[in-house]
Design a protein around this nucleic acid. Structure first.
Lengths: 172, 172
DNA sequence: GCAACTGATTGCGAAATGCAATCGGATTGA
DNA sequence: TCAATCCGATTGCATTTCGCAATCAGTTGC
């Protein structure tokens, strides 16, 4: 573990955790993309992370307590990465970051639809999403009533709808 | 300006803005510390930023539209840095980051009291604070009724109270 | 004049980044 | 059986960025 800190300021300490170009991207792909394996993170990343950087960040995020690693029973060589509660509670920060980026930065429509829905859903939606993540990653019992559509599925469906609409508009 | 982006994802684009160890620290010192000059930022930083890094980040934050620079009428060589609306709207993100850090990271009591108050105050307090910043940095009319104590003063007073209490406890 | 202060800039070693190739073991398909 | 593929990494290397110290020229106060 890292014990040398620049200061005890909470913003500074948070920055020491994700003050780099890749850590939050990995967590984003795990949270919103549902990725759990090394290769999924490596090949699924639209930003194109390098394998050595990914390996280094996964290790670092484990040391920091944001991820855990377990063997995949279906494949002796496969490792499953799980979010910890510490990482799951980043959902509101992700939502705010996405909302801020959507206002001020040149976001693409299909990649910002998730941020838009998350912003409109507000804290209740974030809570539901965090519950889902606790279920998937920590084995916690799910609180939502049966039949409730998953937040990730909703976001993914909205993303795919935008992609489909844009594809149609391009060929029309 | 930077026009090459890794992706149009709002979280990625936000990360391209402050995905480094210093940019947010500088904004933090301007927002919560009220610092406006190069030397104030350089010498007041508890994390100890180097002057070349500070110069580089100030330039970058200006190019990105988060800061503006103006001449200080009191000193021909002095520059005053101002936050733009884009930077002022980071206050909720700062508040969330601080709250998250306070829960999960080894924060010091005196440096996290501000985050605690900001968290307890919630969105209404953040709005009041952003109004103050708009007044200070953008010349906007202040909305709060006269006599309302400033948010920054409240935070600063709370910080000093903790420092004083700890100093007293140490000598007792 | 001159020291202190202003916002920077330069030089340089250390560290991080990004890319490509590779590793040994596990699994899959023919 | 055996080659192809997939698994989570690791290594080597060139480029870029970082961070520290020293320094700069112009401005101000005395």
């Amino acid at each position: 573990m890292y014990t040398e800190h620049r200061s005890g300021c909470p913003i500074n300490l948070s920055l020491e955790v994700f003050g780099d170009r890749w850590s939050l991207i990995i967590l984003r792909d795990m949270i919103f993309g549902g990725r759990r394996h090394f290769r999924e993170l490596l090949n699924g990343s639209i930003e194109g992370i390098a394998s050595n950087i990914l390996a280094d960040r996964l290790k670092r995020l484990m040391e920091l307590g944001l991820l855990t690693k377990a063997d995949d029973p279906s494949h002796k060589q496969k490792a499953i990465y799980s979010l910890t509660e510490m990482a799951i509670t980043l959902v509101p920060i992700m939502a705010h970051l996405g909302a801020w980026g959507r206002v001020w930065l040149p976001v693409s429509e299909e990649l910002s639809i998730r941020a838009e829905l998350l912003e409109k859903g507000g804290p209740p939606l974030w809570e539901q999403f965090m519950d889902e993540l606790r279920h998937e990653h920590l084995g916690a019992p799910i609180k939502a009533p049966p039949g409730t559509p998953g937040v990730r599925q909703q976001l993914q469906a909205a993303y795919e709808a935008v992609v489909a609409r844009k594809a149609e508009a391009a060929t029309a």
